[in-house]
Amino acid sequence: MIVFLIRRLAALVVVLFCVVTITFFLMRIAPGGPFDAERKLTPAIEKQLLAKYKLDGPLHQQYLDYLRDLLRGDLRDSIKYRNRSVAEILAQTLPVTITLGAVAFVLAVAGGVTLGVMAAAGKGTWRDTLAMLFALSAISLPAFIIGPILILVFSLWLKWLPVGGWGYPAAIILPALTLAAPYVAYIARLLRGSMIETLGHDFVRTARAKGVSERVVLYKHALRVAILPVVSFLGPLAAHLLTGSIVVETIFHIPGAGGFFVNSILNRDGFLLGGVVIVYCAMLVLFNLAVDVLYTLLDRRIRLDG
């Protein structure tokens, strides 16, 4: 187990190194620079700006300098948002993105599991059909369809919930629902399949024969086995939620990291982009690690050897 953890943490370093390298060069190879959008700069000023943001000198030198700064824990300054460091921006925006993602995550898993068990338990009945119809529809529709429609209905017509913004509990409901909806559906479908298979096993029949209540059979005996495919989907789920939150933050005007991510690409703000991408990837790798550990705790047949 310890060897496994050490190996995976070493892999994290490798992944982050690759991510930094790819992002850095992709940002620098494209024609044009971060100061293109501004008024025509005199060569002297442009040179000074480039020097200030350490964008002068040969490319490989810049790259090595950047790596050295990162190793010291310095994510550098944003080029576009003058006088703000990347670390500062991230410290303000990441908690927002993480809160939204965490709420959506809990919603997706709780909703998906309930719906999936319900469908599997009532296999072939109208409840199953209805749940799967809902699931297929929710999977088919992306956040930028569900989001504006939810705003239109619940905020503008019914006036129940705020249009957007952040900072009070009611504001998180629609964005989290929008973000979670497709994954509620995905998990429900995944779980329905594995649950139906599990319910055919002998140990379920034994439990039923012993007179265990149906509820306990479903949620305690069968779910423990049937949940495994869902657990292995949690890693990709986190990646999807992170990507999806970019759109959801835009729709609902939420001051999270997603907006800064998109703007940093459009503004060619390389260091801000680098910072966001590094943090995103680190979170995902660590999360995947946690999922793998959870997996072994649930299924004792698997051992983590690395």
Binding site: A30, G32, P236, H240, I265, L284
Partner: peptide, 20 residues
């Protein structure tokens, strides 16, 4: 690749290569 936010990298790539 499954657990990498692929669209995020594609976003960066499109921006880098379309001018080229």
């Amino acid at each position: 690749l499954y657990s990498v936010p692929r669209l995020i990298f594609i976003l960066i790539c499109i921006n880098a290569f379309s001018a080229y």
